[in-house]
Design a binder for these strands. Sequence first.
DNA 1: GATTGACCTGGTACCGGTTTCACAGGCTAC
DNA 2: GTAGCCTGTGAAACCGGTACCAGGTCAATC
Lengths: 312, 312
Amino acid sequence: MTNIHDIARLSGYSVSTVSRVINHQKYVADDKRQKIETLIKELDYVPNRLARDLSKGQTKTIGIVLPYANHPYFARIVDGIVSAGFAKGYKVTLLPTNYDMTVERHYLEQLKSKAYDALIFTSRSNSLDALERYQKYGRIVCCEDPGTSSCLAAAYTDRLASYVRALMWAKQQGCQNVGVVISRDNLISASSRVTRMAYQETYGKLPAANLFTGAVTFEDGYRAGRYFAKLKPSVDAILANGDDIGAGIQDYYRAHQLTPVKIIGQENLLSSRLMQFSTIDHHLEALGKAAFELSISHGQKHQLIKSEFIER
Amino acid sequence: MTNIHDIARLSGYSVSTVSRVINHQKYVADDKRQKIETLIKELDYVPNRLARDLSKGQTKTIGIVLPYANHPYFARIVDGIVSAGFAKGYKVTLLPTNYDMTVERHYLEQLKSKAYDALIFTSRSNSLDALERYQKYGRIVCCEDPGTSSCLAAAYTDRLASYVRALMWAKQQGCQNVGVVISRDNLISASSRVTRMAYQETYGKLPAANLFTGAVTFEDGYRAGRYFAKLKPSVDAILANGDDIGAGIQDYYRAHQLTPVKIIGQENLLSSRLMQFSTIDHHLEALGKAAFELSISHGQKHQLIKSEFIER
DNA sequence: GATTGACCTGGTACCGGTTTCACAGGCTAC
DNA sequence: GTAGCCTGTGAAACCGGTACCAGGTCAATC
C-alpha cells in the first residue's frame, strides 16, 4: 500500500509539500503540484482516512442510536439523517440498542474514544441526565422535547399540538369515547404524559381503561384491537402511536366483522393510506435532517418540526 | 483528553505495560495490573479508537452501499446486516448512492483509504467488473447472483425458483394472462432476465406489453395498475416486484371499481397482508446476515437464501 | 553449576497522516 | 538600504495507539 511518504520519496519533494497538494492548499509551485498530482494518479494513491482523522481529531462520522433498524419510524428518521449527512460529507453509523440500557451506555463510552463526532439518540433508555454527562466528549442530540430543565440539543415534533388537533377532529366527527395506544410507557415517558395532556384539553381526564400500552408492531395493534373491541363503555375512535399499529387495530375489527371505529394513526405510512384512516405526519425525514444539523453545529440547541394532520 | 502516555506516566509504568493491561494480555504482575486499572477508572480513560484502528490496520467497520435508506427492501437487508454485525462487534455505516454511479465509485475509492474493512452492495450501478477491480483493497460482497463468470462474494435469493413457484401457483389458480412489474431494467439486469426465464418456464415467452418497467414505490404501482387496467388482452394476475407496488396496483383497481386481478407481491410486507394478496418472502434479514458473514470471512464466497411463497 | 524457558517490563519503531516552525528568496514601501 | 510581507519548501513534532525486541528475574531441569 503506497502512502504519503512513498509519494514524497518518489516525487523528490517532502511529505509536507505532498500533504499541501492533497489538501489543495496554497503555497505550492505549479510545476511541482502538477508533478505530484500525476504521480498520485499513477500510483493510484488515496490518503489513509484513519491517519487523517487521528491527526485532525475528528472523524466526520455521526452515530445514530436506535432500538432496531427495521421499523418505519426509525427508518424515516435515519433516512433524513443519512441524506443530510451525505450532503455535508458526513458518514453515518447505525448503533442498535434493542432497548438495552447497557448497550446504550456502551455507545456513550465510545464517544469518549473519539469514534464519533456526535451521537443522535432517536430513542433512549438512559436518563437525560446520563446523556448530559457525556456531552463533554462530543455533541449529543436527542429526538424528543427535553423540556426546560435539560441542556441537551434536541430536534422534536410538536406532539402535544398534533394530538390536540387530532382529538379535536375526532370530537368534530362526533366521536364520544376515544381510546389511545402508546408504546412502552417507561421508555419515552414524555409520550404518555403528552397524550394525557392532549386528552385533558379535549376530552378531559383520560380513563385508565382507555389507554393501551406496549404497542410497537402491527401484531401489537391487533392485540390492541381485541382489547378495545371488548371494552365497555365501547370506544368509537382510537388514536394509535403509528399507522401500522392503527392498521392492526382496524384489521382486528375487520376480521371480526365489527362496526369499524375511527382510527387516527401516526407517521403517514402506506398502511394508513391503504386502510384509509387519518394520520399525523410528523415529517420524520425533516426531523432527522434537523437532528443532523444540530449534531454538527455548536450554536443552536433546539429545533421544532411542525406536524401535519392528514384527514381521511 | 488523557491518553495512554498519561496513564503510563502517572502510574509509573511504561506504555507497553499499560497497553497490555488494556488489552487483557498475559505477563503483567497482578499488583501493577490492579494499580493501572484503578488509575484508568479514576481518570475515566478510554483508548482512542482511531489510533488503535490505524495501528492495527483494521476498522471493524462495514459499509453498506444502497440507493436510499427509506425503502423496506433495503431496510430489511440493512437490519439483517446491522444485527449480525452488532453481534460480532462490527460497526455498520450507511452509504447512500441515490443510484449515482459516480457516488458509488467514490465509495469504492474509500475502500482504498481503509475507511472500511468491507463493502456490501445491496444494489449497484457499476458493473461487476468494476467492483471486482476493487477487491484487492478490501472485501466486497454483492446481494445478487453474480453468475459463474464473476469471482465476487455474494449472498442472494433463489429468485428464479421463487418466480417459477409463484407463476405456477397463478396457473393453478386459473390465471390465463399474467403481467409483470420490475424496477429499472438497466439497474439489476438480472431482474428482467430472471423474470423472463421464469415466465418462459411457465407461461412461455413474455409478451413485451405484459412487462411494466420502472416501479419502485406505491405510486409507481398505482401507475402500473392504470397501465394494466387498460391493456388488451387484459391480464388476470400480476407479479409485482414488491408488496408496496402490488398494493399500488390493487389500489388502482379498487379506486376505479374494476374487477380485481390476482396480485403476487414480494418481501412479505404489511401491505400484502392488509390487501390480502400472496407474496414471496425473500427473507431479506437472513440475506443481510449472510452478506455480513461473507464480508468478514475469507473463505466461502457464495450463500443462497431460500425464498418462501406465502399464499393468500 | 549451567541451561532452559516462563514470566515481567521497558524502549522504540511504526501506522500514515497534519501542522507548526524555521528559513530562504523576491518584491514592495519608505 | 533595510524593514516588512508574501511565497515556497522541508524538518520534525505530534495524533494515540500496537507490537516487536531486548533484557532481566527466577524456578525447574539435566
